[in-house]
Design a protein around this nucleic acid. Structure first.
Lengths: 155, 155
DNA sequence: TTCGTTGCAAAAGGTTTGCATACCA
DNA sequence: TGGTATGCAAACCTTTTGCAACGAA
């Protein structure tokens, strides 16, 4: 009987220079950030952390519930340290990445209702909200993403 | 942004053997399907269509609003022909991919409310529901590992 | 000392692109 | 005929894994 999993089974968390750097960089970012951006920020800040380690650290933080994850349209994962209580839904600015926790009670209840009505079991829901925040709206910060106004002139 | 029937700025839609095959296979699938599965189904059915063409066709159909898209946990895209009226939300079975359109009115209203309350503009929402459908539920040898809280605390 | 952690390189998995050719309108 | 669609291979991108060396406890 390999008990070995209750109490102190999981590997102990070792506080290394790299992990501290990743968590620091994560908290320094204003909104959701990708592993790649995090790695770049670390390099720019003088920290030497392998990309693999960034991914592994984020993965661990995700499993332990210390970060929230959303997904870009491309499938890229974006991370954000989880606030105190464990909010799960955010309204994220498409331009600057800043996030705004929202109360998703209505959605939770709706999802539960749908689950009950359809006969599906183990229903999980993902809700992602994106928009343009107050700060980004007035001007065109233009970080490089596609601008669709380049379409052929009409008339 | 109409580009499906006008030959002005967008190329005209040419009805080719490959495109008909892709659309046929798409309609033959019971639920959401990936490009890879679609390609395999086409090959199994005797149709010779390149994987590239499958991707390009699906992308065009997506842009013209003829298919709905959801994303797997892995980031993989799953496609489904859009029903008549343009439903946008589904409850998808994680095991067999069968989908069940749901009335998402409550979510729409909630999203609109959040948009108004936060000051964000151009708010878009993504809602994805997954579960285990009636048909897949009986035989589920899934052990279910709800033991994640065993992780050592982070400091 | 122990054994979890790191980092490089390479693989994996999905999607897109370059370019010459086939084919619809 | 003209120009779009196709297809193969290779590029791309993000994420994961193998394995030897490192370092926290």
């Amino acid at each position: 009987m390999q008990d070995s999993s209750v109490g102190q089974s999981s590997p102990a968390w070792r506080t290394t220079r790299q992990r501290l750097a990743v968590m620091g960089a994560l908290h320094d970012c204003p909104g959701f950030t990708s592993a790649r951006e995090l790695h770049a920020a670390l390099e720019a800040g003088g920290a030497t952390v392998g990309l693999t380690t960034v991914y592994r650290t984020l993965r661990t933080l995700e499993r332990t519930g210390h970060v929230d994850v959303v997904r870009e349209k491309t499938g890229e994962r974006l991370y954000r340290p989880r606030p105190t209580d464990g909010h799960r839904h955010y309204l994220v600015c498409r331009l600057c990445g800043v996030s705004h926790p929202v109360d998703a009670d209505a959605v939770e209840r709706w999802a539960d209702g749908v689950a009950a009505a359809t006969g599906f079991a183990e229903v999980e829901h993902t809700v992602e909200l994106t928009g343009i925040c107050d700060h980004c709206r007035p001007v065109e910060p233009d970080p490089g993403p596609p601008v669709w106004e380049r379409e052929a002139p009409i008339h």
